[in-house]
Simulated assay, not measured.
Amino acid sequence: MFKRALITTAILAATASSAFATTTIGGATLIDTATVNSGTVSPTAYLSYVSGGNGATGWADGSTYGITGISAASAMATADHNWLQYDPAIVVYSATALSSVLAIPAIDHGWTSGNTGEFWESFEFRIFGSDSSGALLEEGHITNVWAKGVDDSSALKNADDWTTQWSFTGAYNYFAVVSGDRLVGGFYSPGEGEIDAIAAIPEPETYAMLLAGLGLLGFVAQRRKLQETV
Rank of each mutant, 00 (worst) to 15 (best):
E124A: 14
F119K: 01
S99Q: 13
D131K: 09
I31Y: 06
F20K: 09
A16F: 14
S133C: 04
F2M: 08
A28V: 08
E203S: 11
N82H: 13
T143K: 09
W83H: 08
S42F: 03
Y93H: 15
D61Y: 12
A60P: 02
I7S: 11
L84H: 03
N173K: 08
A28R: 04
V220T: 13
A155N: 13
G114T: 11
T9G: 12
R126H: 00
G180S: 06
A19H: 09
I104C: 04
N173F: 00
N82R: 10
T143P: 05
N115K: 05
T29I: 13
P105V: 07
V41T: 12
T35A: 14
A77M: 01
S51M: 10
Q222R: 14
A208M: 06
D161S: 04
G52V: 07
L136Q: 15
A97L: 03
G191Y: 06
S18K: 14
Q85T: 10
A75T: 03
V177D: 04
T44S: 15
W59M: 12
T163Q: 05
I104S: 01
S42Y: 02
T164W: 00
V101C: 03
D161Y: 09
I195C: 06
D80A: 02
S48W: 05
A5V: 06
Q85E: 15
A16E: 09
A200G: 07
D131T: 07
L12N: 10
G39A: 04
T29V: 14
S179C: 08
F123R: 05
Y207H: 06
G69M: 09
Q227G: 00
